[in-house]
Design a binder for these strands. Sequence first.
DNA 1: AGACCGTACCGTACACCGTACGGCTCAGCT
DNA 2: AGCTGAGCCGTACGGTGTACGGTACGGTCT
Lengths: 256, 256
Amino acid sequence: MSAKKASDADPARSLALLWGSHSKPGRSGLTVRSIVLAAVELANAEGLEAVSMRQVAERLGVGTMSLYTHVPGKGELVDLMVDTAYGELYDDVDAPSRQPGGWRGALEFVAARNWDLYRRNPWMLQVIDARSTLGPNASLKYEAELRPLDGVGLTDVEMDSVLALVLSHVQSTARTAANQARVQEESGMTDVEWWVSNAPLLDKIMDGTRFPVASRVGQAAGEAHQAISDPAHALTFGLDRILAGIAALIAGRNRS
Amino acid sequence: MSAKKASDADPARSLALLWGSHSKPGRSGLTVRSIVLAAVELANAEGLEAVSMRQVAERLGVGTMSLYTHVPGKGELVDLMVDTAYGELYDDVDAPSRQPGGWRGALEFVAARNWDLYRRNPWMLQVIDARSTLGPNASLKYEAELRPLDGVGLTDVEMDSVLALVLSHVQSTARTAANQARVQEESGMTDVEWWVSNAPLLDKIMDGTRFPVASRVGQAAGEAHQAISDPAHALTFGLDRILAGIAALIAGRNRS
DNA sequence: AGACCGTACCGTACACCGTACGGCTCAGCT
DNA sequence: AGCTGAGCCGTACGGTGTACGGTACGGTCT
């Protein structure tokens, strides 16, 4: 009944690896660090689905099973990949706080940095949803992103909620963008090309009789964005609304 | 170079299946409909990863390869599953428009219905990100959700952006909730249990010296939600901010 | 009634995945 | 010089999607 499904990471093992000091070069140059780096490179070059133990090993010129001497399993390896990627985010823990524009400028900076992170490492979006084993870089990220919200009039719980909302928006938009890019790459067709090629069929489907508003709005949005969806626009549009909503909350807190 | 990666759906085939009238009972009772239904049941009962061609076939008391007579491949099957699930959403195309509270009440209704959809069919969250082949039910959904936004002062493009923002928020929150539930189920531990059991280690990590704000806020949020994150709270908190931001936009449009 | 044929059905096979197990090789210490 | 323990890895198992080729049956025409 308590099935251990498949390649799930053991949180305790991951934590130990994440915070431990692994510096045993071995006799064929294999290290936890080198394995994780190879896996990340592979993920960015050929997508997360290409990250198999066999492929990572091959990239390192090493037998598949050798990896298991340094890493308990694939799940833990993925946890390590995530924290490594988080390391790119901020130069130091006060980078967001240093931004001009107060909490608003800081949140815009945080959103932009996270957006860049996901654009550079699209594989994270397929992985984050699994769990969040908090390694050193993830912890630093949390601290760095919370600091500019400290002392603006929000409660501690509200600070967490506000940050979570902004991050959730960025992640969701980045996911859409990544999927769109992937589909285009796989099909070799841009959104526009796909749309015009399937237009006759879609016209029959989306006839203005049954779906008047949808066909009108879909048409307008499609022409405006030259695509089914425009992630960059969705990012700024959504962020603007969200920040306005947050500003109202803060104003209310400070007024009372 | 133009690699067909794995089990990706061919959009054209999916569209044909989605809109076509497939009603050929075959000689062992096998139908596109029955296959899709079995797959959805399986996904809800044992998770999306349990939906393999073999398992679906077994559930139907049929050989694995027999499915391929009715469905081109797994990708297309998943597309069919998604549109089937969308069928649960609204009784008719004017259900959201009938809600009290104007556009705001309608959007809250839309958010609630989509939230329920994802809670009932968590597998959709692992699938949606793949692509969005628009079947009949998806089209009806789009129309139903846009109608209450028609004539409130937004441009057509803004209507699309506003709806996308709300749906994106719900989906993102539902994803977090589903992952949390899955982790708890797999580990047999609630968030609280996990937290207290890993507390000593986490205390050493999140010491108030290096991460003062994070440890303080994390503590407060954890105690308030009795979990690492509280999806239900995140849903309403975020929706409130977003709707406030949208209200500001609409007010600006109507003032000018 | 008998023959035919298209389609539904399915058994087998292939290439991939994660990883358990057991054996080999060699660095470093005694 | 000899031993030991750790690094390394070849093989094997059960899972995946699906290509291929063969079987068996329902409906139609003679």
